[in-house]
Write a protein that binds this DNA or RNA. Structure first.
Lengths: 208, 208
DNA sequence: TAATGCCTCAGGAAAATCCCTAGTCCTGAT
DNA sequence: ATCAGGACTAGGGATTTTCCTGAGGCATTA
């Protein structure tokens, strides 16, 4: 019997997946978390074999939660789950220690397959994503990582704050905010605020 | 026995909800659609009592689908479903003819309640949303509606295209694009491209 | 016929952004 | 102890974008 922890901020989705698992006698959903903090707590309490983890969540994003759980309980198998297969999200999730990843547009059977495979110590990725990951590794974009300050600026920018407001919020100069912004744009190869906003949403830095 | 058509672009979500409905003998999920076009076809084929409709979909957004279905089969009861309760989305969905609306963060029991209530000819809204709608009605923002051209420009802007590129794409002047953009900003009370991008995503005009 | 709304465009002022440079602070390695 | 490198900070000036105002053509409608 495989114990599963389900992490997603949408109750309807959690209930649905739980109901699907209930039809399968090999799995037991021992708990559900609706956010990153709760996920950490429930992982500690239940020590599940597998965690199915959404990426975009209001408090802590799935990537950071994964890092912390893999640090505390390295034997846990984590399967990432999100709506869109953004290159950086998927690779960062794998680098954070996730053993598998799939999209919400995939079938429940795929989730079962993914869990079986990660329990064997292997990595599970849908074809679509494995190509993407290989491509990303090839272009060496994996090392692209934002600093804390840059991430904060991106969050505020994508939330609709202007450069002046951000400078005020962070108590730094407008020029500094501009620098952070420009550095992020260059690092991530983005062209404008719309690109940056979509990036922030895809990566769970903000909610739409 | 209530026949239900399920419309959502994520298979995992569809399967989950279907599984939940399967536990309830009063409902029968007669079909599932993964997009707007398919929803129209399956609505025509099955004439379900109730349609549970996601808003953000790759081909046609839920609001337009709702309009067309309500036009063809006015007796159908449609319950809108989305991740975030954006004022304009909810009100536009209701104006399109939906009889209820709920969020993915709500419980399945709420969905059942919603269906029961809309089948009685009433409107179902969670408290959170009803307040929002009242507020929107009060501030008279319901009449805010984008023209075709404006919508197209918003789509392109939120997709990351620059003003010059859009002018080229639509074969119009840069100045005209600027005007459309400014009009949208004023209509929707947005301040910058980040706000506009999030609006476009929330309203299903583009995918993140 | 007027009136209204949509789409189209332009000029000029104001604001934001981009490009380049550069300083400080801190950490880790030699 | 010193040095290298990254993170964070910031300014000057050029460039681009945005904002505001005004306006003509065209279709639909009253």
């Amino acid at each position: 019997m495989v114990s599963v922890l389900l992490v997603d901020d949408h109750q309807l989705f959690r209930e649905g997946i739980k109901s699907l698992f209930a039809d399968n006698e090999r799995f037991n959903v021992v708990a559900c978390a609706e956010g990153g903090e709760q996920a950490l707590a429930l992982a500690k309490e239940h020590r599940p074999h597998v965690i199915v983890m959404d990426i975009a969540m209001p408090d802590i994003n799935g990537i950071d939660v994964t890092k912390r759980i893999m640090n505390d309980y390295p034997q846990t198998k984590i399967v990432g789950l999100s709506m869109h297969g953004d290159r950086h999200v998927v690779t960062n999730m794998l680098k954070a220690g996730a053993a598998g990843y799939l999209l919400k547009e995939d079938a429940f059977d795929d989730l079962i397959k993914a869990i079986d495979i990660v329990l064997q110590g292997k990595i599970y990725l849908p074809e679509k994503l494995s190509l993407l990951v290989l491509q990303t590794l090839h272009t060496e974009e994996t090392t692209v990582q934002l600093t804390n300050r840059e991430t904060r600026v991106v969050q505020l920018l994508a939330s609709g704050e202007g450069t002046k407001e951000i400078a005020d919020t962070l108590s730094i100069s407008v020029k500094t905010v501009e620098t952070h912004r420009a550095n992020v744009m260059r690092k991530l190869n983005l062209n404008n605020l719309a690109d940056l906003t979509r990036y922030a949403i895809r990566n769970g830095l903000i909610v739409p």
